[in-house]
């Protein structure tokens, strides 16, 4: 953890100091660690002359950005309309209970992170759960444990 003052200068200076650089910068930043850390937000804010809260406000609006360290496997529970009415919320809650983490967080052993997503385009298979790139369809609470234990 002792990488305290890592410099983001190289990434920053590749982009002009203007409003339009915000999103591409965030994307580049995220690419280095798979998530956006508070230090990155600070660096981007300083570089663009805006506040951290402005950076975070924009970044957190887009689901492509995450702000916590991702686990080895990413679990995404769909809460789009079709999945929602078919019990997506219950699936998410079960995950939260089983893994003891909240959406956006990562298990202490860094194995799994949990996310909620809106519609991943396979509504016919609702409710769906995505683990990394595998889509699991018509999931129910009983199937859940099977799914995540298979990735352990």
């Amino acid at each position: 953890m002792e990488r305290l003052d890592v410099s983001y200068d190289k990434i920053l200076h590749a982009y002009p100091n203007e409003e339009g650089s915000l999103i591409p910068l965030l994307q580049k930043m995220q690419a280095t660690k798979r998530y956006i850390s508070p230090e990155m937000v600070e660096a981007v804010a300083d570089y663009l002359g805006i506040t951290e809260s402005q950076v975070y406000g924009v970044a957190s609006f887009y689901s492509q950005f995450r702000f916590t360290e991702p686990g080895k496997h990413s679990i995404s529970v769909c809460l789009g309309t079709a999945c929602h009415v078919n019990g997506g919320e219950t699936l998410l809650e079960t995950f939260e209970r089983d893994l003891n983490i909240k959406p956006g967080e990562c298990t202490p052993d860094k194995k799994f992170d949990l996310n909620r997503v809106a519609c991943i385009g396979c509504c016919a298979l609702a409710p769906v759960v995505k683990v990394d790139n595998d889509v699991h369809s018509k999931v129910n609470v009983i199937k859940l444990k099977e799914i995540w234990t298979s990735y352990e």
Binding site: P38, V41, E52, S53, Y56, G57, S60, F61
Partner: peptide, 15 residues
């Protein structure tokens, strides 16, 4: 800032 979106929207500083 307005953080997150939809029904998860909150208001406040970064993080």
């Amino acid at each position: 800032s307005l953080k997150q979106r939809g029904k998860f929207t909150t208001i406040g500083p970064a993080f």
